[in-house]
Design a protein around this nucleic acid. Structure first.
Lengths: 149, 149
DNA sequence: GCATAACCGACTCCGCTGCTAGGATTTCCT
DNA sequence: AGGAAATCCTAGCAGCGGAGTCGGTTATGC
């Protein structure tokens, strides 16, 4: 169970933007240098965030990115969903249940899929944890030298 | 964010064993057929479960596997941990660096890793959800045609 | 002693993730 | 006007790990 590096990068990117809230837009290059992340890859990451309307871009010289809303109003489940695609602990939880036979025997005899209950609870736990955390919290946390979880 | 198929298989395997609690040991072959899973792969899965003392094996003819404890006393976080290796939403959360989670740029300037707070909460949410679910619950859930999460 | 079944390790296949490359487009500044 | 600095797009690639196979060995019941 792990989130992709893309998600990690995206969260870091968002935090970086949150740190410069109210200022002029921040360029990807600046973020890449601050966080020591590959610039060319960040382009893909930020594209996801933009598609989800979490970020607003300004093109051209002195352009860059800004948060679309105040950091305090951005719940982290939105961010992670935008980057990860969906928050589902098992493939059969996403919309396109393509090839694999994960929940196969559910339809067979009407018996409930044993693991469904488990994954549902896990999913709930994750989403709740993400939802109750705002970007502003992360920004603050990353600024203070010591803080509790 | 998803768990591996191995974990899904392992949970199903455990449920299947739970269903036959108190009986003679169940062979992998029987489980593979019941759940329509590849037998040869299940061998690896069950090996993990055995290593974690969640399952007891009986070798030879009429052998098979049994739960090491009553299903009601087996919390699902144990099972998932045994199969998944660890429950960490990010690589830097893996065991080994307990006291100080190393997140690349954290060591640089003493600034806390922004994402640490987030992943810690997520991890907590997952572990809590898994821990409060017992194997017995899943067994019961999979037997009744309809139940709520 | 034969069938059954756990045990073990090595090996292959494939998809996905992370990352790069190159170009096109937009905008600011002088 | 023209160049520099950015976002934007698409294609492609390489490595790695997950999923599954296979052959063989050991242990046990009948």
């Amino acid at each position: 169970m792990n989130f992709s590096a893309k998600t990690e990068y995206g969260v870091r990117l968002m935090v970086e933007l949150g740190r410069h809230e109210g200022e002029r837009p921040t360029s990807l290059k600046a973020i890449a240098e601050a966080e020591r992340l590959p610039l060319s890859y960040l382009e893909h990451v930020v594209a996801d965030l933009k598609r989800a309307d979490l970020v607003v871009a300004t093109r051209g010289a002195h352009g860059g990115y800004r948060l679309s809303r105040p950091a305090g109003e951005i719940a982290m489940d939105e961010v992670v969903k935008a980057l990860e695609g969906q928050i589902a602990p098992m493939d059969c939880f996403s919309a396109g249940d393509t090839h694999r036979v994960v929940c196969s025997h559910e339809a067979d005899d009407g018996r409930a899929c044993a693991t469904k209950l488990l994954w549902t609870r896990v999913q709930g736990g994750v989403v709740r944890a993400l939802h109750k955390t705002t970007l502003a919290e992360l920004v603050e946390f990353s600024s203070s030298p010591r803080a509790a979880a």
